[in-house]
């Protein structure tokens, strides 16, 4: 019995391997549609044409922070596509990403986006700026910064925008957090709650709203006059790719994501290009966009905003008094 089961398992494991290798991809939640509907089928086709090998994919999607920790803890992904650089840097620290992952033509990035305010169709409450979310009676959704990269981008957008218009970031963030009704684990879960009808506004990635609209969900979004440019890195996880013998595939996929045709496809799914000379005609023009570097870089942001007892924790305390 045991032998029979073992033999079956071995067969199951071997049969597809004869046709081609499997590439494991671990991503944050929001590129799910563009990857599964467009990019991975296109890459499989491209690889088959050039090498005659039928590649298979295993994909995992969860909040960027959770995903990064899962890979660090042994989820053996060959390629990661995460929401923010520190989540790749965690894998560098764990000795899993050993190569120069920033050394690609796009500086290690696969895509970019902006933090926006998703609203009900027609924007009935006329929510346009981050400060509008502080209004009494407005119900806001955002994921939890402990697990979600998208949540961190939203917090950075609100704090940075407050800085820029001369407001107090702590007060602004506290007043916004006081309006938060549901805090899900990742950007996708948060959007699903919003689709269920909870809340008036959702702080999220522009591409997350675009994907929902493509699926026929009746909602709109406002790009606040001042918001943050979100930059999402992709990298080969060297240690796992070498162990699986998939380095060539993994490197090819990361390079493929950065090429112009794929960047254009991403644009249709709301992801803004990171490659020079690629346009995204379907997405609205931006006015004032700042980056992590404008906020002092990741290290400064981690220390000032997200460290224990820093701005975010203080704002959470402040928000309790305002509900």
């Amino acid at each position: 019995m045991t032998h029979a089961t073992l033999a079956l398992l071995t067969l199951a494991a071997c049969a597809p391997a004869e046709r081609g290798r499997t590439l494991v991809i671990a991503a944050y939640t929001t590129p799910r549609e563009v990857l599964s509907e467009q990019l991975l089928p296109a890459f499989r086709e491209d690889w088959r044409r050039r090498h005659g090998e039928e590649v298979r994919f295993e994909t995992s999607y969860q909040g960027s922070g959770s995903q990064s920790r899962a890979v660090a803890a042994g989820l053996e992904a060959d390629v990661v596509w995460l929401s923010l650089e520190p989540d790749v840097e965690r894998l560098v620290g764990a000795g899993l990403v050993t190569g120069d992952w920033r050394g690609t033509p796009t500086g290690g990035l696969a895509s970019s986006s902006v933090a926006v305010i998703g609203v009900r169709e027609g924007n009935p409450l006329q929510l346009h700026s981050w400060a509008d979310l502080e209004r009494e009676g407005v119900e806001v959704l955002t994921p939890n910064v402990r697990t979600s990269g998208g949540a961190m981008w939203g917090v950075m957008a609100i704090a940075g925008a407050a800085d820029r218009r001369g407001a107090d970031p702590l007060r602004a963030l506290g007043a916004t957090l006081a309006r938060v009704r549901v805090m899900d684990k990742g950007a996708r879960e948060s959007m699903l709650s919003f689709e269920k009808g909870v809340g008036d506004a959702i702080i999220t990635y522009e591409n997350e709203v675009v994907v929902a609209r493509r699926a026929g969900v009746p909602l709109d979004y406002a790009v606040p006059a001042q918001t943050i440019r979100i930059e999402n890195p992709a990298a080969v996880v060297d240690a796992y790719a070498d162990r699986h013998g998939t380095r060539d595939l993994a490197e090819a996929l990361v390079a493929f994501l950065g090429e112009a045709p794929q960047q254009e496809v991403m644009g249709r799914y709301g992801l803004r290009p990171v490659r020079e000379g690629v346009d995204c005609p379907d997405l609205p023009a931006l006015s004032e966009v700042f980056t992590v570097r404008d906020l002092g870089g990741w290290e400064a942001v981690q220390g000032r905003i997200f460290a224990d007892g820093a701005l975010y924790d203080q704002a959470l305390s402040l928000s309790r008094g305002q509900r």
Partner: peptide, 22 residues
């Protein structure tokens, strides 16, 4: 639950959040 810390986040869900936060 809405899972908002200090509002509607219960201990068991908080524990999972901490595990996922490493």
């Amino acid at each position: 639950s809405g899972n908002v810390p200090r509002e509607t986040l219960v201990a068991s869900v908080y524990v999972l959040g901490e595990v996922e936060a490493g």
